[in-house]
Amino acid sequence: MSEHADTAHPALRHHFDDLNQQHAAGTLGMWFFLVTEILFFGPLFFTYALFRSGSLDPSFQNAFIAASHHQNITLGLTNTIVLIASSLTVALGVYFAQTNKKKPLVLMLVLTLLCGVAFLVIKGIEYNQHFAHHLFPGQGFHWDGAPELARGGQMFYILYFCMTGLHAFHMVIGIGIFIYILMRAMRNDFSSDYYVPIEVSGLYWHFVDIVWIFLFPMLYLIDPASKH
């Protein structure tokens, strides 16, 4: 690719020499942002590990199992599949942008957004069930299991709401980003020369997917067989 062709590209920002430099900077920037994200979710994972391991209070081990029995595995599994499917559509979106296929690209972006919204709707249904069962932590929390497990059960739901809430917040941001990407795709902004905004937004989306990949077994699948 010659430098002259690059310089002429309308998407080239003034402070970069060529599109290659601009793309490299954008991609690297997103990766460093994901570093921050890893250390943003990380302490919650640590807090979860600390309480679930029973290092502070051994009764929390059983409390977490009992609390997770209130989780709806079917809905959790559905959401996992929806989210992984959305990761596939994002990846295919990058592929169609790289190969200059606009219509499939737009389709993939629309599918991604639909998956994202579907995830949030299902999450909302779950939250609604938790509220109905008084599982939201705080004054209204009601524990119908063994009373000695109540504190640990509430701790599980504090972490559940913090982690899934933060994750859902990232989903909302991701949907916003992909609405913007979709509008640009429909405006014919992207081509095999210039697709990095999709790639970079995709990195964020995949990261949010990975967080869920870990959250699913942590929050839904703690010894489900022991539920009677």
């Binding site: 990761s87 990846a91 990975i210 870990f214 699913f216 942590m218 699948l221």
Partner: peptide, 17 residues
């Protein structure tokens, strides 16, 4: 469970990302 999740995450990172 953790190992499977890690494998899944690694696959996503290597190929999707």
């Amino acid at each position: 469970a953790f190992a499977i999740a890690t494998v899944k995450a690694t696959v996503v990172v290597l190929f999707f990302m």
